[in-house]
Design a protein around this nucleic acid. Structure first.
Lengths: 148, 148
DNA sequence: CATTATTATATTGTGCGCAATATATTATCT
DNA sequence: AGATAATATATTGCGCACAATATAATAATG
């Protein structure tokens, strides 16, 4: 009985890496890692956002985001500026090429679905359960669309 | 439509990390990381195993496993020995304390379920879909029980 | 039997992910 | 206003993941 739930956690862990591995060759073409791609997706939705807001959305802390965002800045995809009214917060803004990269990224998810040989229905089923468990166990800020 | 499947991948990625974060305080008590715990679980099932066999089961390569296994060896939980009949392969054997650690680890999954506030049914549902997608997209060596 | 190819693991380098800590700024409270 | 607390980000250190490469041993071939 105990083993069974272990396998559930492991299956999730393995599948998560498997999907990212399918993203990799496609993201390589636009010189992004999967976490960098996620950060840009959040910014494509709503912009500018603070590091804190990005972190809540992605469930990542500044120890992860700061270097990641610096790499995106080096690639001239975003700009990091301290808010003049509160010098503690760093606001992330997309550059023109950062905005334009969205067009190249749009087709990636379909290609991943094809390369993984999975259907929209399977993905939806998985997403719904995953989001339900995220809401139960964590703060549940996934479907919150915190794009104030 | 494209956003939807992105969120499926992200939900999985976020949930995977969330679960591991729930494991962390429990695994801290027995001085293990989650990947180290997984490696030991495979060894508790079947022992000894080569690095290659462990890697297939965990879907991890030697670049990840070699340092991980060296840490487990430093903790006196396993022993790494080169097979005399073929000096290329490294066989992993549990030490006595490595075997005994299973007892302390047995109760962890139930505690994780409780701390995440999820049911066995939800986990099973998730595991079944995840394993199905893993089989479709990858080599599908999850339910293979490759414990020769 | 020597050469080549294959196999198994190790090494190196990059980028997360997260805990712990540090730093700097702003808000709060006498 | 000055001391204290709270907030937002940055830094450091460790352990994965994975690609690329290296090393060593075995198998296959002529």
């Amino acid at each position: 009985m105990l083993q069974l739930d272990n396998q559930a956690c492991f299956a999730l862990y393995a599948l998560s890496r498997e999907i990212i591995n399918h993203y990799r060759p496609l993201l390589d073409e636009i010189d992004l890692t999967y976490p960098q791609y996620l950060a840009l997706m959040v910014l494509w939705e709503c912009q500018p956002q603070t590091v804190n807001q990005l972190g809540e959305r992605l469930r990542l802390d500044s120890g992860t985001l700061t270097p990641l965002l610096k790499r995106l800045e080096q690639k001239k995809l975003i700009i990091r500026t301290r808010r003049s009214s509160d010098e503690r917060v760093v606001e992330i803004t997309l550059t023109q090429s950062g905005k334009e990269l969205k067009n190249a990224a749009l087709e990636i998810p379909v290609k991943v679905m094809q390369s993984m040989n999975v259907t929209m229905e399977e993905l939806s089923e998985l997403r719904i359960i995953a989001q339900k468990l995220l809401e139960k166990s964590g703060r549940g800020c996934l479907s919150a669309t915190t794009t104030d």
